[in-house]
């Protein structure tokens, strides 16, 4: 399976980089098989300073609990002084959107979901959240978990020099032992959910096809269906 940087995370990273100031360090991390380092390399090219790949055979098969456990352990060990822990709202494939907030609880920090925008105000960060029915602006204290909800439809363009610089930056791999976690805290063994079976999503209907050339006839048919008369 190819490994790409998730659009939600890419958007989150660009938002963070846009408010980066002199002296700030942006660290990118992910958990996954060795090929996930490609996604991290892209983060480095986009402007992150350092990257960590949490990778271990024992991490395989992790549900959101076991994933959060590893991520929380990483943040505690390698990023305990971080101003913010930033996530994309969800991964475009699994779409559970649970990991950021399980991590927030495991780290006992505040969480900010559906963040659209973030700015600096004095020494702290102000986030704008969109709950659909209301918009909330909050001050995010040091260490908070922030999850960005949008994607950038166009993505970010990189120049050759970005790529060259990104290739030089450090990318470190950390395994289970490096995180100080036991075998039963990670991966399939550490998961709190199990997939019992998979099936195909079959909701097929008895279909009747009609080839209609005349648009007004189609319109009539649709009107009939809607129960409205012209």
């Amino acid at each position: 399976m190819p490994s790409i940087l998730d659009p939600y995370c890419e958007h989150a990273l660009t938002k963070v980089l846009s408010i980066k100031e002199e002296g700030d360090e942006v660290v990118a991390f992910t958990m996954g098989p060795p090929q996930a380092s490609e996604a991290l390399r892209r983060c480095l090219c986009l402007g992150a300073d350092k990257a960590f790949l949490l990778s271990d055979r024992a991490f395989a098969g992790a549900d959101t609990w076991a994933t959060s456990r590893a991520v929380a352990a990483f943040v505690q060990r390698y990023g305990s002084d971080a101003d913010l822990v930033v996530f994309g709202q969800k991964a475009s494939d699994g779409e559970t959107g649970q990991v950021p907030f399980e991590v927030a609880q495991m780290l006992s920090v505040q969480q900010f979901a559906y963040v659209k925008d973030m700015r600096r105000s004095g020494g702290s960060f102000v986030v704008a959240q969109d709950y659909g029915d209301s918009e909330v602006e909050c001050e995010a204290p040091a260490g908070s978990v922030v999850a960005f909800s949008d994607v950038d439809p166009c993505g970010t363009l990189m120049s050759i020099s970005d790529r060259l610089r990104g290739a030089q930056k450090p990318l470190e791999t950390i395994d289970r032992v490096g995180l100080g976690l036991g075998l039963y805290s990670v991966g399939l063994k550490g998961s709190r959910t199990r997939i019992v079976r998979t099936g195909t999503n079959d909701v097929r209907r008895k279909n009747r096809k009609a080839v209609v050339g005349n648009p007004s006839r189609v319109a009539e048919l649709l009107l009939e269906e809607m129960g409205a008369r012209p």
Binding site: T64, S68, E95, T96, Q98, P100, F101, E102, M106, R192
Partner: peptide
Amino acid sequence: GRETAPRLAAMLGSGLTAD
């Protein structure tokens, strides 16, 4: 709900299935 449930799951040590 989607924001609160994961936090609650982490507090209770529960497995949580989304959506």
